[in-house]
């Protein structure tokens, strides 16, 4: 799956445009950043309802390529600037966390961990 496929599946709006042809292996959905940081398995997409700069930092540390803000939420410009500097694509989807994750899973994106 590529970034532009995610945009289609989630009816997402592009807030920061990175490489839309970037291949994505697995995804992770959480509002607890330490939980995200606990499982490194080449996850390339982070779905979250949290809007602070630490979301981008977390994605940066884990070499993730794409952040999706759920439920139509939009972060401040400062957060978007940080993502831009790090070449991370930022999307906003109207769907809630459960639905957004479910749609991506159904479309073939997996969690990347055995359990």
């Amino acid at each position: 799956m590529k970034v532009h496929d995610i945009i289609e599946v989630l009816d997402a709006e592009i807030l920061v445009e990175g490489d839309l042809d970037q291949e994505l292996k697995t995804a992770c959905g959480s509002d607890m950043m330490s939980d995200v940081l606990a499982f490194v398995k080449d996850q390339s997409v982070l779905l979250t309802g949290l809007l602070n700069p630490q979301v981008v930092r977390t994605a940066e540390m884990m070499d993730m390529h794409c952040i999706v803000f759920v439920r139509g939420k939009r972060p401040e410009q400062l957060v978007l600037n940080l993502a831009q500097q790090r070449d991370i694509t930022v999307l906003a989807t109207p769907y809630r966390m459960f639905t957004a994750c479910g749609k991506l899973y159904k479309a073939g994106l997996e969690g990347g961990t055995a359990i």
């Binding site: 607890m32 950043m33 330490s34 939980d35 940081l37 606990a38 490194v40 602070n52 630490q54 977390t58």
Partner: peptide
């Protein structure tokens, strides 16, 4: 509410 405080930081540091 900022996304921290799961009590996972130190165990993560030990792991990595």
């Amino acid at each position: 509410s900022l996304g921290f405080g799961a009590g996972m930081g130190l165990p993560n540091m030990k792991k990595y």
